[in-house]
Amino acid sequence: MPALEHILVVNAILFAIGAMGVLTRRNAVLILLSVELMLNAVSLNMVAFAVYGHVDFGNITGIVFAFFIIVIAAAEVALALGIVVRTFRNRATANVDEVNLLKW
């Protein structure tokens, strides 16, 4: 088994890459992909904690959380893509900078 710190560092890098994608990308679907990367990093972290700690601490909450994260991510993707498709139909763009009706 790899050391816990190594897994955590890899996940931290993955999370930061996802954050970078959210901050730099402008296409709504690509932002969604980056958010999914961040979610994956988080659930990987939770699983790592659960696997390394369940003998000592006697619960596997992290694994259950990862399961819930995956399920909720599916719901979130469906809704977000619905919004993207609807936005595209109304404004002919998937670029979040051009969806600015509520901006001053």
């Binding site: 890459i17 959210v22 730099t24 402008r26 900078d97």
Partner: peptide, 15 residues
């Protein structure tokens, strides 16, 4: 159109 104007800032923040 895939990248915003604030790309360097975003990269810096993420790093």
């Amino acid at each position: 159109a895939l990248f915003g104007r604030s790309r360097p800032l975003g990269i810096a923040a993420a790093l």
